[in-house]
Amino acid sequence: MKEYLLLHFIYDPTKPALIKAFPPLPEHGLEFFPKGLVTSVNQRTGEVKKEPRNTVFGQPVSRINFVMPAEDYVMIRVIFHTGGLFRLLRVPLTEFTDKKTDAEAVINREVQLVNDRLANTASYVDMIEIVEQYLLEKTRQVKSDRHAVDKIGTLLLHNPTRFSLDWLADQACLSPRQLERKFVERMGIGPKLFGRIARFHKAFLWKEAHPQADWLSVAVNFGYTDFHHLFKDFKEFAGVTPNTLLSEYARSPEKILRLV
């Protein structure tokens, strides 16, 4: 496991619905929703659905808008290291690319038992411990077969513009075609697209943390050829202009709701 994200919101149901803009992030893993369920809207396909209580989520490539429930809401997201979900499930991650799948159908009913325990504790520390104990038990059953391609994914995650495909393939002792095939199997998408998503995410987070910086400086700092190159990625992954995405993030539930 790479990290956990725990969110707990108490939202006044008499207020207008809150929407969380969620462009693609370079990550995959598991989610537990012990309290409250969100409704997701895929901006690319238009699909609207209520998310399962427990989900396996693969590498996203489309923007999703989450409509937050007007109730007590708790979410625990488990983010895996690159290649980690493949090693846990032993299923090509193309099966989960750009979607969330009911974890009970992928793993078994034990994930709902974990969710039941989460719903019956008010301690955040205990919640993380419950999930961690479950995952540690699961990982004991997994062979430790971290592939060179997983390390390539980590390189791209931290330095998405620094390396050429030929250089990456050489580091993995694979041909470019072999690298592409193994990367898609273990990550759900190819290394080029993964690197683009990682760069887009890093650029946006940096701009959000440095609001005084202009977008041209952001583009240059993160290896875009010019502002229009950056603008194109924002339109593809976020569906809106860079400044519009900043405005939407400023209205995100975690920024305006009272954290319990």
Rank of each mutant, 00 (worst) to 15 (best):
E180R: 10
I76E: 08
Q171Y: 11
P160C: 07
E47R: 07
G84H: 10
L257M: 10
V78A: 10
G84P: 09
R53W: 09
R44D: 06
L88T: 13
T45A: 03
F194P: 04
K151S: 14
R186A: 08
S62W: 07
V56I: 14
I76V: 12
K15N: 02
D233K: 08
S175H: 11
A103F: 02
F231A: 07
R140C: 08
D166G: 12
L157I: 12
T97L: 07
M75A: 14
K207L: 02
G190R: 07
V74W: 11
V142Y: 02
A250Q: 14
R199L: 01
G190L: 09
N120T: 07
F57I: 01
A219W: 12
G239C: 05
H210V: 08
V131P: 02
V131N: 03
R90E: 15
F237Q: 02
G29M: 01
F194W: 13
D98K: 02
I256L: 11
R53C: 01
A213Q: 10
D226R: 05
L37Y: 03
G195K: 08
I10H: 03
E236F: 04
Y249A: 04
F200N: 04
K192V: 13
V38I: 08
Y11C: 01
I10P: 02
M68Q: 12
I19M: 04
H158L: 15
R77Q: 14
L193I: 14
A203R: 06
D150N: 02
G58L: 03
V149N: 06
A119G: 06
N108R: 07
